[in-house]
């Protein structure tokens, strides 16, 4: 479904991604790990079309379409979803209004009628339960005054509402206590199917205990320098990144 080829990207003229190659097929879970500043979040930002980043070379195909040519909203409509590392607070815009607009714009893109108010609220209720999100949160402004854990649960709630084909979870585990982590990971697992895929960006093995990856990639200095199975994550947890740097001849 996703094919990244030789992807290079800049922010403010500084090259962060220096040639990424990655292929993701339906049903797969990929973990991307790597030390701070290696380009993990940049990759998610570039894939979702954050205008702060500039792609200088390479291509990304998503179900045969040129992903980089699409606007952020159309990437979403095509089934791409990012769970933000730092979800944005939007004072004055209610969760209900926000979600209804998002769901109906997606439906419009797919040639469907907008959901009626009752159907929409029913859908909200159903999906809220997946991440045990309080009804009170749903009536508040987007992420405003939410705790760290609530924000992350809210991300997975939105993912449940939009039913993406490919989800990128950008450090969804950061700032979560063990209960919240369990709820968030449980939500992700409930949404998993043969047809969709997940890219999990994380520093720690911890999240991968809950969301089992099929592939683990190490991103370092803007390139994927090592790929392997789930055992690679365990090895990283135990040994850190120095041995990889050593393999690369840096130490």
């Amino acid at each position: 479904m996703l094919k990244i080829t030789d992807l290079h990207a800049n922010i403010n003229g500084k090259e962060i991604l220096k040639g990424i190659d990655l292929e993701v097929r339906p049903g797969e879970v990929h973990a991307i790990m790597g030390p701070n500043g290696s380009g993990k979040s940049t990759l998610s930002a570039v894939l979702t079309g954050n205008p702060a980043y500039e792609v200088t070379r390479g291509s990304v195909e998503f179900y045969g379409k040129d992903l980089l040519a699409l606007s952020p909203e159309d990437r979403s409509h095509e089934g791409l979803f990012l769970s933000f590392q730092y979800p944005v607070e939007i004072p004055g815009v209610s969760m209900v209004n926000f979600m209804r607009t998002a769901v109906n714009e997606q439906r419009k893109y797919r040639g469907l009628e907008p959901l009626s108010a009752t159907d929409f609220l029913k859908l909200m209720r159903e999906k809220r339960e997946i991440v045990e999100l309080d009804n009170k949160l749903a009536s508040r402004s987007v992420n405003e005054g939410f705790s760290g854990g609530e924000k992350k649960r809210n991300e997975i709630f939105q993912m449940a509402m939009l039913e993406p084909r490919l989800s990128i979870l950008d450090e969804t585990d950061s700032g979560l206590d063990i209960d919240a982590l369990r709820i968030v990971a449980g939500g992700v697992n409930k949404l998993k199917s043969e047809k969709n895929a997940t890219i999990v960006i994380t520093h720690y093995q911890r999240l991968l205990d809950y969301i089992a990856p099929d592939f683990v990639h190490v991103l370092y200095k803007g390139r994927i320098v090592k790929s392997g199975g789930p055992e690679l994550a365990l090895e990283l947890e135990e040994r850190g990144y120095d041995w990889i740097k050593k393999e690369l001849g840096e130490i």
Binding site: N50, E73, F81, F84, V88, I90, E105, S141
Partner: peptide, 23 residues
């Protein structure tokens, strides 16, 4: 940031601007 967040959820840029100005 708020604009991009909304667009990443499929809300068009003009609609996102409208929602922010309204808020």
């Amino acid at each position: 940031n708020a604009l991009f967040y909304m667009r990443s959820r499929g809300i068009s840029e003009s609609e996102a601007r409208m929602l922010l100005m309204f808020a």
